[in-house]
Each structure stands twice: as structure tokens, then as C-alpha cells.
């Protein structure tokens, strides 16, 4: 058996998707308040979960290749288009800070009963249509400053892959420590109980009514 299987079938998609969605919801990533709290430094779950996942998968891919279970260069590695990659990431970050989600987490939110996730998806469809509408005019920017095809960090820095992995583990540990300290400073990460009981529209209206009557 050679890996990867290059299985693009229905069962493969459903299996990966179900596991992905199950983990994301259990991590609390269906909540827009928890997701945006990362940017306010009060909840470092997004950084912690993503960075850990990247390190675990990176080590797994390294081991699978080293043991010959998988051929080097057999999986898809995206190419950098400096300005488009950076600006695109920036817009997705801005979109999360404003709308509360990214594409994957908005799907998780909808599945957990959040109607605002549906509006976020409508927005994404409009944004995609807008991009398609102006594509011919921004094609130069879209393809500008292209890096070497499928360039990786070991290639960029000219150092061995294991050293990059060690550096990422060190960064992850530092990030966990710093993140946990900042979480304490800013009130701590949002628990499931907080996410499920606070921030209701009803309670906001009550606060407004109390303020109006008090004023």
C-alpha cells in the first residue's frame, strides 16, 4: 500500500470532515465569542489548538516520510504568492475579528444552531462573487511576487527539517506559557458554560432596559 491513497471519494470526505467538525466543536470553535477572544488575548485556545495540530501533523508527516511509508513530495504544498497570501490572510483575520468566524468554524457554528453563522456564510458567498467580479483587474496582484513552487521553511532557511520541527516545538511551548499567563491577566478563557449562558440578546435587552429605567 502506498501513501497517500489519493482517495477523493465520498467516504473519505465524510470521514475527514466528521472528525474535523467533531474536534472543532469540542474545542469550543463553534463560538464566535471564544474565537474572537483570541484577538483580545483573553483566550488562547485558537493559537494553542492550531499550533499543536500543526506540530503534531508536521512531525507525523516527517516520521511517515523518514520510515518510507510516504514518498517525499507526494502531498500538496501550497506556493507563496507573497502579497496575495499575506493580504488574503489579513482579510480572513479581519473577517474573524468582525464577523466572528472563518469558513470552517462558521460551518461548525451553523451545525450547533447558530443562525449568525448562516449570515456569515451568505457574506462569504458574496465576497467570493465580488472576488470573481474583480478577478481580471487584480490578477497581477494575485500572482505577484511568487516564491519558488511549494517552498518550505527548511528550504527557505537552508536548514534541515528536524531543526525546523524542534524550533516549532520550542515556539509552541513558549506560546503555551505566554498565552496562559496572558489569559490569567485578561480574565481567562471562555468555558462552555459561559458560552452557553452569557451573551444572549435577551440579557442585552434587559441590561438596556435597566439602563434606560435607571437613567
Amino acid at each position: 500500500m502506498t501513501l497517500p491513497l489519493y482517495d477523493s471519494g465520498v467516504a473519505s470526505g465524510l470521514l475527514s470532515g466528521m472528525l474535523f467538525g467533531y474536534v472543532l466543536e469540542n474545542a469550543g470553535f463553534g463560538s464566535p465569542r471564544k474565537l474572537t477572544a483570541q484577538f483580545r488575548f483573553s483566550d488562547w485556545s485558537v493559537f494553542k489548538v492550531m499550533f499543536t495540530a500543526i506540530v503534531v501533523a508536521a512531525i507525523g508527516l516527517y516520521v511517515a516520510t523518514a520510515f518510507g511509508w510516504m514518498k517525499a513530495g507526494s502531498i500538496f504544498i501550497p506556493t507563496t504568492y507573497f502579497w496575495a497570501t499575506l493580504t488574503g490572510g489579513a482579510l480572513v483575520g479581519a473577517g474573524m475579528a468582525i464577523g466572528g468566524y472563518c469558513p470552517g468554524t462558521s460551518s461548525v457554528a451553523v451545525a450547533a444552531g447558530r443562525l449568525d453563522g448562516l449570515f456569515f456564510i451568505v457574506g462569504m458567498v458574496l465576497g467570493t462573487a465580488l472576488f470573481a467580479g474583480v478577478f481580471d483587474r487584480i490578477e497581477g496582484f494575485y500572482s505577484a511576487a511568487a516564491g519558488p513552487v511549494s517552498q518550505t521553511l527548511p528550504e527557505l532557511f537552508g536548514i534541515p527539517e528536524w531543526l525546523v520541527l524542534v524550533a516549532l516545538v520550542v515556539l509552541a511551548v513558549l506560546g503555551f506559557v505566554a498565552g496562559t499567563m496572558l489569559e490569567r491577566l485578561y480574565g481567562g478563557p471562555l468555558s462552555a458554560a459561559q458560552v452557553e449562558t452569557e451573551g444572549e440578546i435577551a440579557s442585552v435587552t434587559e441590561i438596556e432596559i435597566v439602563e434606560i429605567t435607571a437613567g
Binding site: 488574503g88 480572513v92 451568505v122 457574506g123 462569504m124 458574496l126 465576497g127 467570493t128
Partner: peptide, 10 residues
């Protein structure tokens, strides 16, 4: 936010 994200992801 969805519009920005949709555009940015493309």
C-alpha cells in the same frame, strides 16, 4: 465579516 473572509480566502 463574511464578505471580507470570502474575498480574502480567494
Amino acid at each position: 465579516g463574511g464578505v471580507l473572509t470570502g474575498f480574502g480566502a480567494r
